[in-house]
Design a binder for these strands. Structure first.
Lengths: 120, 120
DNA sequence: CCGAATCCTCGGCGATACTG
DNA sequence: CAGTATCGCCGAGGATTCGG
């Protein structure tokens, strides 16, 4: 279910990082979980661009990789909460690094995107 | 050519980082360029899992976003070299962060993958 | 060697409906 | 509310060809 068809060189730490947190929405999910949004419906609200189904898949992979843990409450209506594992908290450093760079790059980026809009 | 269909919230630095360097092979390309592999054929050899065409697309996006610059030599046979721009060098910090985390996570990761192989 | 153009395949993802 | 199953579309990306 979680097999990747493309055999990357997984002896390199960079590739492992890409594999584990490089998914389309994984960094966002982790950031939101860290902010305290733990339930699937909350996460979906904060990332409406992706369907609940896809977010579930990404969360399942994160859980499989040991980055988040899933707690299921047997109540009605059902309740599920995700949280970062101890090991998962280490990836926050990576997220901070990405966010920090992105903030600094924001102006340049938006200038480029604006230009792109004009030539279209 | 470079438009993204999915409108993310681009006011967040994290999303910008994902947008610019989150492509499937971009981090690898940047790492290899930084290592001194500058020609398309070299890059393709170092990342044989992706076709030359796809690598070209990713490089074009990196160039469009101002992370790498492309130098074309008008000689026969043709010669092209990519290099990091001044601004592009800043992303190396992010790559280091990812690689560092990945190295630390390597053992756990491979244990999980191994287990996955067994249950298949 | 570089890369544009073409064709074609395949799987990611949305939509919907259903169960617990 | 959470999660699975099914269907169908669309586009990313591989393979190939050609031109410079």
């Amino acid at each position: 279910m979680y097999e990747k068809k493309i055999p990357k060189d997984l002896s390199c730490g960079l590739n492992i990082a890409i594999e584990v947190i490089g998914g389309k929405w994984k960094a966002n999910l982790l950031a939101n979980i860290n902010k305290g949004m733990k339930r699937p419906s909350e996460l979906h609200k904060s990332i409406p661009q992706a369907s609940a189904r896809v977010l579930n898949q990404q969360l399942a992979e994160l859980e499989f990789h040991g980055i988040v843990s899933k707690k299921i409450f047997n109540v009605l209506p059902p309740k599920v909460e995700y949280s970062l594992t101890e090991g998962g908290k280490d990836v926050l450093e990576v997220l901070y690094s990405m966010k920090s760079w992105g903030e600094g790059y924001k102006k340049t980026f938006h200038d480029i995107i604006k230009y792109e809009g004009e030539i279209h």
